[in-house]
Computed example of a mutant assay.
Amino acid sequence: MPYEPPTHTVERSLRATTGARTVAGVDEVGRGAWAGPVTVCAAVTGLRRPPEGLTDSKLLTVNRRTALAAELADWVTAFGLGHASPQEIDTLGMTAALRLAAVRALEALPQRPDAVILDGKHDYLGRPWQVRTVIKGDQSCVSVAAASVIAKVHRDAHLAELGARHPEFGFEGNAGYPAPIHRQALEEHGPTEHHRMSWAYLDALPRWRHLRLPAPRGAAARTPEPAGDDGGQLGFF
């Protein structure tokens, strides 16, 4: 299906209205997964012409996304990755864990950005960062689209590594998201140390529901979501 390529419109607007010299696009992946970290990428792209085919990572095939991430690693001015572990998600709740991962990603950049474009309508980052939220920013903003692709490829690679250690869960295919093979493995083997233990999927597993941790105060328990995406350190490995 044809789509409009992302532009630098928001990046230019922030430069013009706030005087920002460095603008970072930020996107996350792994919010709806049962296992693995939530991963955030912060990408600084400048105003150069982006690689052909850049868009939201969810609109790309696996092969195209992987090839594009390799191209972006050399094309972007800088990028940083931040992660919040399943244990941090269980302790803090998803919103606070997202902020933790985003701060880690931004602090991994060689230079603190003057402004941040955050994908979506909710500002989970907050002060002291100067944030502009953009719904579907991963499709419309170059820097956010770049962050989307880099975050997705790095997290998928990490989950594939976990899948080699726990092949019964099919992490290399489902990236820790709800999927039939994932649910079956949970029923038979129970959760691993890579699973989020405060989430409601455990309620549907009679043998293992006693392991469920209480949701953090003020954080809603997560219920099962379909496979797929919503939308630190320098590098993951």
Results as ranks from 00 to 15, higher is better:
F237T: 11
I89N: 05
I135D: 07
A115I: 01
V131R: 01
R31G: 13
R217Y: 10
R222A: 11
S143Y: 06
R183N: 04
L92C: 04
L202T: 03
L234R: 12
G170D: 01
L47H: 02
G235H: 06
K58W: 14
K121Q: 13
V29D: 03
G176T: 05
R12T: 04
W208K: 07
R217V: 11
W199M: 08
R217I: 11
A179V: 06
P226I: 09
G93S: 13
E107T: 12
L125H: 10
K58F: 12
V103Y: 04
A146T: 02
V76A: 04
A101T: 08
R207V: 10
G30T: 07
V44D: 01
E225G: 05
G80M: 10
L109H: 02
R212Q: 12
A105I: 04
M94L: 15
T18C: 09
E88T: 13
L162Y: 04
V40A: 04
V26Q: 02
G173F: 04
V29A: 05
A220E: 05
F237Y: 10
W34K: 04
A146C: 12
V40E: 03
A97M: 06
T55F: 11
R132F: 00
S140G: 00
A200I: 06
L47W: 03
H195T: 02
H194E: 09
Y201F: 10
W34V: 02
